[in-house]
Nucleic acid binder design. Structure first.
Length: 582
RNA sequence: GUCUUCGUAGCUCAGUAGGUAGAGCAAUUGACUCUUAAUCAAUGGGUCGGGGGUUCGAGCCCCCCCGAGGACACCA
């Protein structure tokens, strides 16, 4: 390839990337396809070998294995590479004179030794112990399965200590594939997350509940207090919203006669992001007919305990500094009871004024718009929530903040609602579902009032949902449990981004570069384009703004530096290029 | 949205007082037939996030912007 071509490539490619592309061409010349179409038969994985070979060394004498090269230790005519597959790593051992029995040593010197960290190869051979006692595959042949064109971050490890770890959060989240390759423990988190979901799914299926799917694109959004994402359907010419919850649809199914339905649902909320919030997140919602919220508390305990047992083999889970024990039964507090427990004050009998006074004492910023319910909520948030490390149910919430919840059977002003709090954060929200259609209409209307007063998160009135309730919904217990939050706890992850493969990020900005053709179109001869790139004049805009006299000097300098075999450029030519730019 | 910390080679990070941009790993070339953070020798590699300013001179000082982390706010 001509030198000049590399200067142009180098605008976007690093030296190492160019070298890898050259190797690809070199392999091609040798007749090696670096991206073969055929399947590669694999008959063993690294975990099986590492577990079973020490017990029985007659095993694995004819293996076919594939993986990604993670380390290379080349010692002249012998090489040790480490290959990584989905389950772990294993060392391979290659000998030049075995791979190349004849005179021609190209396959070893020109191909095997030229492989890069990141390349994926298949190998055939037998498993043995090296002199230093490491299980290895002594390979007889190898096949390139995929040439890697980008250098991986190099993470080294000795005696459990990791050197040069790849840990910049931005790069880890944006390029999760790299994170997964070089930080294998990241996989465990996501495997646990899937186990968590599977455990819950099995638990619910065994009880006979039906997993269902409901719309994500909704003409009305409901079931939670949140701002939605808005989108548009072209053919129908109508606004649709991405769901903020699926509650109202699942309850329609209870009306329809199912006695237990659940859905693992991606929900979308147009809010700020934080360690605990991602714009899209996963909830499992469950609705069971003829049950109430007390029954649901027992069910949640049972299900989450089962998850802990499945993932950790014990109910005790290390989370940050704390050991959290999910063993049933969990502590239960009424909301008033929790506040009294942590502040020593019983606020249940207070009027709004007294409560506002007390809220201020607790450190809540009180303003005139706050009603009794809001004050209780704030006092709880300020004084209790963060202190609730062990899983705890908080029940009996004020009616104003719970528009879909049944009124409490015996306590006026309260509802039959509970949340489970764990590690200082809510993990679920559940209630005896409101099935009185007249009361429900009134609650929606109250929400509309809030909306008119400027509350952007108030609920909208869903006429079809009310119609369904008017046909009659049996008494029902409902639950929403945050899968991301629960995963954070169960995997000891401090940030929601650690339990989402691809957390939301601002888009990366790509450096703007005009194409070679753009430059040719305004009359720049090919050889000079590389020189312009080298001068950081990457776009026509930059060329247009350039001072022609300075550019004449700079290009003269580049002509020498790049040893360009073309006549020097004239001022008039440069002026012509610039004049040609629109 | 506010406050705060950060952005230097492919990766991890140094960078003195404002004075020619450094190290380790990775890469290239060479040596090496049981290494394992392999070793040894040589070589190449930089828009110091971007733009502007102060200065004879800026990676460093000042301003604006972009991106990321954390805290708070909003929100469950």
């Amino acid at each position: 390839m001509p030198l000049i071509k590399y200067y142009i490539m180098a605008i976007e490619l690093s030296e190492q990337e160019i070298i890898r592309r050259q190797k690809l061409e070199e392999f091609n010349r040798l007749g090696i396809n670096s991206y073969p179409a055929e399947l590669y038969e694999v008959n063993v994985n690294s975990k099986e070998i590492n577990e079973n070979f020490p017990k029985d060394q007659s095993l694995y004498q004819n293996v076919s294995f594939a993986g990604r090269i993670m380390h290379q230790r080349i010692m002249g005519a012998v090489s040790f590479y480490e290959l990584q597959d989905a389950h772990g790593k294993i060392q391979i051992y290659a000998k030049r004179d075995e791979l190349c029995p004849g005179e021609d040593k190209t396959l070893y010197n020109g191909v095997f030794k030229k492989l890069d960290i990141g390349d994926i190869i298949g190998v055939k051979g037998f498993v043995f112990y090296t002199q230093t006692g490491e299980i290895s595959i002594h390979i007889k042949e190898f096949t390139i399965l995929c040439k890697s064109l980008r250098p991986l971050p190099i993470v080294k490890e000795k005696d459990g200590e990791v050197y040069d770890a790849f840990q910049d959060p931005e790069q880890r989240y944006r390029q999760r594939y790299v994170d997964l390759i070089v930080n294998p423990q990241v996989k465990d988190t996501f495997i646990k997350r899937t186990q968590l979901v599977n455990t819950m799914r099995n638990f619910l299926n065994e009880k006979g509940y039906l997993e269902v799917e409901t719309p994500i694109l909704q003409p009305l959004y409901g079931g939670a207090a949140a701002r939605p994402f808005k989108t548009h359907h072209n053919k129908l010419d109508m606004t649709l919203y991405l769901r903020i919850a699926n509650e109202l649809y699942l309850k329609r199914l209870i009306v329809g006669g199912f006695d237990g339905v659940y859905e693992f649902s991606k929900d979308f909320r147009n809010e700020g992001m934080s360690r605990f919030h991602n714009p899209e997140f996963t909830q499992m919602e469950l609705y069971v007919a003829y049950k109430d919220y007390e029954w649901m508390m027992n069910t949640v305990e049972e299900m989450v305990e089962a998850v802990a047992l499945k993932l950790h083999g014990t109910t005790q889970v290390q989370v940050g500094e704390n050991i959290i024990d999910f063993k049933r039964p969990w502590k239960r507090f009424t909301m008033y009871g929790a506040i009294e427990h942590f502040t020593g004050t019983d606020i249940s009998g207070m009027n709004e004024e007294e409560m506002a006074e007390f809220a201020k004492k607790c450190g809540v910023e009180v303003d005139a718009s706050m009603g009794r319910a809001k004050l209780i909520d704030e006092i709880f948030g300020e004084t209790c929530e963060a202190k609730l490390i062990q899983p705890t149910f908080i029940h009996d919430y004020p009616i104003e903040t719970s528009p879909l919840t049944k009124k409490h059977r015996s306590k006026p002003g309260l509802t039959e609602r509970f949340e489970a709090v764990c590690n200082g954060k809510e993990i679920c929200n559940a209630y005896s579902e409101l099935n009185d259609p007249i009361d429900q209409r009134k609650r929606f209307e109250d929400q509309l009032e809030l909306g008119k007063r400027g509350d952007e998160e108030s609920m909208v009135l869903d006429e079809d949902f009310l119609r369904a309730l008017e046909f009659g919904m049996p008494p029902t217990a409902g639950l929403g449990i945050g899968i991301d939050r629960l995963s954070m706890i169960m995997t000891n992850s401090p940030s929601i981004q650690d339990v989402l493969f691809f957390p939301q990020m601002r888009p990366e900005k790509k450096k703007e570069v005009s194409s070679e053709q753009d430059f040719i179109n305004v009359g720049v001869p090919q050889p000079w384009i590389a020189a312009l790139y080298k001068l950081n004049i990457n776009t026509l805009e930059l060329l247009k703004e350039a001072n022609p006299n300075k550019l004449l000097n700079d290009l003269g300098g580049m002509r020498k530096k790049l040893k360009m075999d073309v006549p020097a450029v004239q001022l008039q030519e440069i002026q012509n290029w610039i004049a040609n730019i629109k």
